[in-house]
Amino acid sequence: MFDSDALFELAADAAEAVGFAEMAALPLSELMAADWAEALRPVEGELRGVLTSLAAEVAAGHQVLPSPSNVLRAFRQPLAGVKVLVVGQDPYPTPGHAVGLSFAVDARTRPIPRSLANIYRELEADLGIPARVHGDLSAWSSQGVLLLNRVMSVRAGAAGSHRGKGWEAITTAAVTAVANRRIPDGGSAPLVAVLWGRDAESVRPLLSGAAVVSSAHPSPLSASRGFFGSRPFSTINALLRDQGCPGVTWELPPVP
């Protein structure tokens, strides 16, 4: 039986031994949770093409973020368990920051990115939960919060550099799979989609009528234009409860 943690919890030296080229040759079931592998089968060719192009960038001397062991991390948790979808843009381009989950950074990163600091500021204003000094959001993802970047890789130091390289087809398929899940009685599975900013709004047509929480992006350039004061966290939990689903415990451990 495939161990879904195997590719994502390697020691640092072992992680680098599994490169993008090697990943491009592996079965999907060894790259992600089994139900994600099935859902993304229609775009398997596109995914292999993207991984091959990332390998070529590395071979040409460029640093690609996040590392191979983390680039598909958003698909580590089973598709069936997703109840909140948070759509980001593309990974942080600063080496050491990107970890494969939108808005999250490595637990050791100081200071945390300003967008994440603004998310914490709104979380405190909304629910009274104090901000953390770290940016490890794995406690959210383990509860079914899918932190998915629209574009899942970036060249170090060059924000947006992998847009139009093939990721969009893969994440379109992923969002569609999340929105179209059904429960045994034939109804839709509980879901709240969180769309912060224009890029995230582009997936709204894929959501099949799912509950949506939207506002400006938490970036310092736009947070004051509608993100602050939007109370997204309490709204998400209220919408989940309306669907008969437990809310998310948004408080993160003080030390991850």
Results as ranks from 00 to 15, higher is better:
Ala177Arg: 03
Val86Arg: 04
Val133Ala: 15
Met23Ile: 14
Thr94Lys: 10
Leu221Val: 06
Ser115Asn: 09
Leu191Tyr: 02
Glu122His: 14
Ala238Arg: 14
Gly209Asn: 07
Leu10His: 05
Arg121Lys: 12
Asn118Val: 01
Ala24Trp: 03
Pro253Thr: 05
Leu195Gly: 04
Ser69Gly: 15
Val133Arg: 14
Ser4Tyr: 08
His217Ala: 10
Ser29Val: 07
Gln63Asn: 04
Leu240Asp: 00
Met1Ile: 06
Gln89Thr: 15
Leu72Asn: 05
Glu16Ser: 13
Ser161Tyr: 15
Ala15Lys: 01
Leu239Ala: 09
Pro91Cys: 08
Ala193His: 11
Leu10Trp: 08
Leu137Trp: 01
Ile129Asp: 01
Trp140Glu: 00
Asp136Tyr: 08
Trp250Gln: 03
Gln89Trp: 13
Val194Leu: 08
Val133Pro: 01
Ser141Val: 06
Ala11Ser: 12
Ala80Cys: 00
Val105Thr: 15
Ser4Arg: 15
Ala34His: 01
Ala15Gly: 07
Val71Asp: 07
Trp250Met: 02
Leu240Lys: 02
Pro190Lys: 06
Ala173Arg: 13
Val43Trp: 04
Val105Phe: 06
Ser161Pro: 15
Ser138His: 11
Asn118Pro: 02
Leu26Gln: 09
Ala210Val: 13
Pro113Phe: 06
Leu40Asp: 03
Leu47Cys: 06
Pro246Gln: 04
Leu221Glu: 05
Leu54Pro: 04
Ala17Ser: 11
Val86Trp: 10
Trp167Gly: 07
Ala37Cys: 03
Pro27Cys: 12
Trp196Ala: 09
Ala174Leu: 09
Ser188Gln: 13
Ile129Asn: 02
Asn118Tyr: 02
Ala200Tyr: 05
Val212Gly: 02
Gly19Ile: 11
Pro232Asn: 10
Pro184Ala: 12
Arg48Cys: 12
Arg121Asn: 04
Val58Leu: 04
Leu240Arg: 00
Val84Thr: 00
Ser102Glu: 00
Ala200Cys: 03
Ser141Glu: 13
Pro27Tyr: 11
Asn149Pro: 04
Glu38Phe: 00
Arg114Pro: 04
Gly160Val: 10
Ala156Met: 03
Ala11Cys: 05
Ala33Leu: 00
Ala11Trp: 05
Arg73His: 14
Glu30Gly: 00
Ala173Tyr: 08
Cys245Gln: 10
Pro246Asn: 07
Asp185Phe: 13
Ala25Gly: 15
Leu54Val: 05
Pro220Asp: 09
Pro220Gln: 08
Pro113Cys: 09
Gly49Leu: 06
Ser102Arg: 03
His162Phe: 05
Gly226Lys: 09
Val105Gly: 09
Thr235Val: 10
Arg41Phe: 06
Arg110Ala: 14
Ala216Pro: 08
Arg225Met: 10
Leu147Asn: 03
Leu101Lys: 03
Val178Thr: 01
Pro184Asp: 11
Ser224Met: 09
Trp167His: 13
Ser4Phe: 12
